[in-house]
Simulated assay, not measured.
Amino acid sequence: MRILHLLNHTRRLNGHVHAAVDLACAQSALGHDVMIASEGGDFDDLLARKGIETSVISHQRKPLAVARSLNAARRLVRSWRADLVHAHMMTSAVLAWPACKLAGIPLVTTVHNEFERSAILMGLGTRVIAVSEAVSQSMQKRGISAARLRVVLNGTIGSARFEGRSRVPQELASPSILFVGGQHPRKGLPDLFEAFAIVHARHPAARLYIVGEGPYLDAYREMVSKMDCADAVTFAGAQEDPFQWMAGADIFVLPSHADPAPLVLSEAREAGCAVIGTTVDGIPQLLEQGEAGILVPAKDPARLADALIDLVAKPAHLQLWRDRSQTNIGHLTIERVARETLDVYASALTKGR
Rank of each mutant, 00 (worst) to 15 (best):
R269A: 05
K62E: 08
H317K: 13
A130L: 09
R186E: 12
F196M: 12
H203V: 13
N154A: 13
G164C: 04
A73G: 06
L7G: 02
W321M: 05
L342W: 12
P301G: 01
E114T: 06
A305R: 05
M223L: 14
R167Q: 13
E340R: 13
A232Y: 07
V233M: 03
I276C: 01
N71Q: 13
Y216C: 04
S266I: 04
R12V: 11
E194V: 15
V77A: 08
H88S: 02
Q319K: 13
R161P: 06
G188C: 00
D259T: 03
A103L: 01
I198W: 05
A147L: 15
Q289F: 06
A249H: 10
A238C: 00
L7Y: 03
K187T: 00
R269M: 04
I334S: 01
L30Y: 01
A258I: 01
R127L: 03
S256N: 03
T333F: 05
T109S: 04
H32R: 15
D191Y: 13
S145G: 14
T109E: 06
A93C: 08
F115E: 12
P63E: 00
S176P: 10
L124S: 01
H184Q: 15
H200G: 03
I294P: 02
K314Q: 10
D306S: 09
T10R: 14
A73L: 15
M1G: 12
P175C: 14
S28Q: 13
I210F: 02
A201V: 02
T327Y: 15
H203W: 12
D44L: 15
D250P: 00
L320Y: 13
F43R: 10
W321F: 02
I157Q: 09
D44G: 07
G155V: 06
W245I: 00
V168Q: 13
A134H: 05
P190K: 05
S92K: 12
L295I: 10
L153H: 10
N328L: 12
M89K: 09
V111E: 14
A73N: 05
H16I: 07
T341N: 12
D22R: 08
F162E: 04
G248H: 01
W97T: 07
G40T: 10
A160T: 15
D33H: 15
A346I: 07
H331C: 06
P106W: 13
S55A: 04
T91M: 10
R11H: 11
D306L: 10
A206M: 03
L265Q: 13
D250M: 00
L4G: 07
G51D: 14
T10S: 03
V253C: 05
T279D: 15
V21P: 01
E53H: 09
P242T: 07
I52A: 04
L295S: 02
A316L: 14
W97L: 09
V85P: 04
F243S: 03
D42F: 15
V85Y: 08
L295G: 05
G352F: 12
I329R: 12
P204K: 14
A87V: 09
R142F: 02
R78P: 00
S136C: 11
D343Q: 14
G237Q: 02
L70Q: 13
V199E: 04
